[in-house]
Simulated scan of single mutants.
Amino acid sequence: MTDRTQYLLKLVERNVKAYIANPKTKAVMITGSVAEGLCDEYSDCDVMLYYDELPSFEELHLARQQNQGSELIEILGDRSEGAFGETFFFNGVECQFAHATIAQWEKEISAVLEEFDVQSPVMKGMSGTLVGIPLYGETLIDQWKAKVANYPDGLAQKMVEHYLKFFPIWGIQSKLTKRDTTLWYYQILVESAQNLLGVLSGLNHLYYSTFQFKRMSRFIEQMEIAPENLASRLEALFRHQASVAVNELEALVRETVELVEIHMQRVDTKEARRRLGERRQPWRLDELDQ
């Protein structure tokens, strides 16, 4: 554990005492870069707090006052929906505290594990749960860890099917060079890279969300099923000339489709495969018949 990680962990442990003192609090967990031991001088503190009944804004204000009057930056979300976020600074460090009722959190977990809601940003929270460090209510948190660790095959298949969609930019690259398409070009690259990661997350039973996605290389290291040198090749897409990048993207898509056909044969890959090799030809200016 680095010095920065140790510092932030101690800071959080001291900070959450005011929240744990509230009898409504049933569990507290730190996640994110602190839990993973990846802190630097820009890292914030991501903390999840769970309750039978959410604390009032007055109770949260009191907790901040007990923490040297920590400066509130914003409140995110709708408290009436059973969960909201609180952002404040403590000793110059940004702290992001997510407050949720146990009922709401378990409902959100079920939406992913049972209803296969692959677009839910809760995916990020579930991944964070697996690496999270309990600070209070360890028994309850361990139950959630065990539940989240049981990644269902149905969710894996839904992930692959949802993300197995790629716009064949490799077929219109000559067309793009004739137009002012810089923003669209990079949008396609970003969406394609996100979709590749989504497909491979399903194949590898990993929780994945495009929401504030960070530390791509570390995420890819968890994959047993992936194209060779995936992280460096994805990064290179945004550095190559367009003529090179689109062909490399096509190669990555082809390799990923092949992996789906090997490891998840029940998924229909015909449409994705049909678009591989696609090249749009310009029409010619011919003399029209009179």
Results as ranks from 00 to 15, higher is better:
A193F: 01
Q241W: 08
A98Y: 03
P55R: 05
R279D: 11
Y7F: 07
L176F: 14
A146K: 15
E258D: 13
Q187W: 12
M159I: 04
Y163S: 15
R4F: 05
P134S: 12
D180E: 10
T2P: 06
Q119P: 00
A111G: 11
M123P: 03
Q222K: 15
P55F: 14
L49N: 10
V112K: 00
S80Q: 12
H61E: 15
V199S: 04
R64M: 06
K175Q: 15
A111I: 11
A226G: 08
G132N: 07
F167D: 03
V190R: 13
V118R: 00
Y50H: 08
P168Q: 01
R279H: 12
K270N: 09
C95G: 00
R64S: 08
F219R: 03
T87W: 09
P23D: 09
A251E: 14
C45N: 05
R14K: 13
E108A: 13
K10M: 07
R273G: 14
M48T: 08
G132Y: 04
S209G: 09
V199N: 00
F219T: 04
R239C: 09
Q173Y: 11
G277V: 07
E59A: 09
I225L: 06
M29H: 01
T256G: 09
G92F: 02
D52I: 00
Q281W: 08
L8A: 00
D289M: 13
T129L: 09
Y51N: 01
L230Q: 01
F90E: 06
L288E: 11
D78T: 15
K24E: 12
M126C: 09
T269A: 10
V199Y: 03
